[in-house]
């Protein structure tokens, strides 16, 4: 049915200084209405100071099935973590 309102993903910035976070989705005819609907659906109790809406069909995502090849390499490089290096106590905090 082409007359169905498209789906939008909703992102809210909780308070100044934090990033926008995904909170859910809703249907709306256009971006302006998506913002108004998101205000009513997702911010009835001071949840946010800023809203982003993105058409769901415009989001590209990594494939869950390729989670291994995609993210495993970040685990092999333990030297990226500061705890990899032993610094003597005498040196003080570093």
């Amino acid at each position: 049915m082409t007359n169905e309102w498209p789906l939008w993903e909703i992102f809210i910035r909780g308070q100044h200084g934090l990033s926008h976070r995904h909170v859910g989705s809703l249907h709306a005819p256009d971006a302006e209405m998506a913002i108004l609907n998101a205000r009513d659906v997702y911010t009835r109790r001071n949840e946010g100071v800023s809203l982003w809406v993105v058409k769901s069909s415009d989001i590209s995502a990594s494939a869950p099935g390729r989670k291994g090849p995609m993210f495993d390499p970040s685990n092999d490089k333990t030297y990226r973590h500061p705890t990899f290096f032993d610094i003597p106590d005498e040196v003080g905090s570093m």
Binding site: G24, S25, V41, R44
Partner: peptide, 26 residues
């Protein structure tokens, strides 16, 4: 009124969760 509006919101959160399983809200 605020309570009933919440119920509408709860319905929308749930439909939104159901849609992630590949069904249409309509």
């Amino acid at each position: 009124l605020a309570k009933v509006q919440d119920e509408a919101g709860h319905g929308l959160y749930l439909y939104s969760a159901a849609e992630t399983l590949g069904v249409s809200r309509a």
